[in-house]
């Protein structure tokens, strides 16, 4: 049971960067960014290829993260190209630009890897290297502790960023785009920066997951966006949204809760691991749909 818990926390912490990225796009920028499924594998591919070619795992992780930022920038520019001037609240171009990038990234990822998966067994990963520096074996609780420290660092960096001049304008874009434009913010460029930061976070998860599970696979991120949404929804619902600093913790905690629920679900006999995507999709659908249905019921 304790081992299950440690591995659930491990997964929750590995994926919390991705969940933060999803929070940043869906909630802060009001941009439902579908690049996530592509940029996570991109981060994992770049990281894995660098590692098997002898790069330092720290450098490889950093490069993987940066590749996600590039993917976000591409989505941002496609959006600038597709959107019409006036329609700020039009989600069509936002959705399409993410879909286009993700589709293109499928090819890019296969090209980067040269095949559909890269095993990292026997290679020195980020965790091995850090473990040997700290003189601990990076499994179970030491791994959880390391990831927790990383999550806290990223959380505070993001918190600081969202309170800078740039971060404030970014938050205002999702809140009232016309207003922030009439305060002289170039919303197109600012949105691109936001997408870059968000997808960098997603790719950080990709890089770390590849190194923790010991391989990169072209299909490793299928459905990860919905899992991210589940984390955001759970975090906001359970821990609240009283301020930006607070909600960043909520969202990280949401990721932990989500992975714990998954681990518990797997202990139920009749649930197969392959059922989880359906269950997650159902959960997100109910969470998003419940308020709508309730409103309709009240009206009628």
């Amino acid at each position: 049971m304790l081992v299950t818990l440690s591995s659930a926390l491990e997964q929750g912490l590995l994926y919390c960067f991705m969940v933060l990225g999803v929070y940043l796009t869906f909630r802060v920028l009001d941009f439902p960014d579908l690049t996530v499924d592509g940029s996570m594998t991109l981060g994992a591919s770049v990281c894995a290829v660098l590692i098997i070619n002898g790069a330092s795992p720290f450098l490889a992780t950093l490069a993987g993260t940066a590749s996600g930022a590039a993917a976000g920038i591409v989505t941002g520019f496609i959006h600038i190209l597709l959107k019409s001037d006036s329609a700020d609240t039009n989600y069509g171009p936002k959705l399409i630009s993410g879909i286009l990038t993700t589709t293109a990234l499928y090819t890019v990822n296969l090209r980067i890897m040269g095949r559909s998966n890269i095993p990292l067994l026997g290679e020195t990963t980020f965790f091995d290297k850090l473990g040997s520096m700290l003189n601990v074996r990076m499994v179970h609780w030491p791994l959880v502790a390391t990831l927790a420290v990383l999550a806290v660092i990223v959380k505070y960096l993001l918190d600081w960023f969202l309170h800078t001049d740039l971060g404030l304008s970014m938050r205002a874009i999702g809140d009232n785009e016309q207003m922030i434009r009439s305060l002289s913010v170039n919303t197109s460029v600012t949105r691109v920066i936001g997408l870059a930061v968000a997808n960098a976070l997603v790719a950080l998860t990709g890089s770390l997951v590849a190194q923790q599970q010991g391989y990169t696979d072209i299909g490793m991120s299928v459905g990860v966006l919905v899992a991210g949404l589940a984390g955001v929804i759970l975090g906001e619902a359970i821990f609240g949204t009283r301020s930006v600093s607070w909600v960043l913790f909520s969202v990280i905690a949401g990721s932990l809760v989500y992975r714990t629920l998954i681990a518990l679900g797997l202990r139920v006999d009749w649930i197969k691991p392959t059922d989880l995507k359906l269950l997650t999709a159902l959960f997100v659908m109910i969470a998003l749909g419940a308020p709508v249905i309730r409103r309709k019921l009240v009206k009628s």
């Binding site: 309170h163 001049d165 404030l168």
Partner: peptide, 12 residues
């Protein structure tokens, strides 16, 4: 900050 650069300076 109207008309000025918006970088990584603390907002408030």
């Amino acid at each position: 900050r109207r008309g000025r650069r918006r970088g990584l300076h603390m907002g408030v």
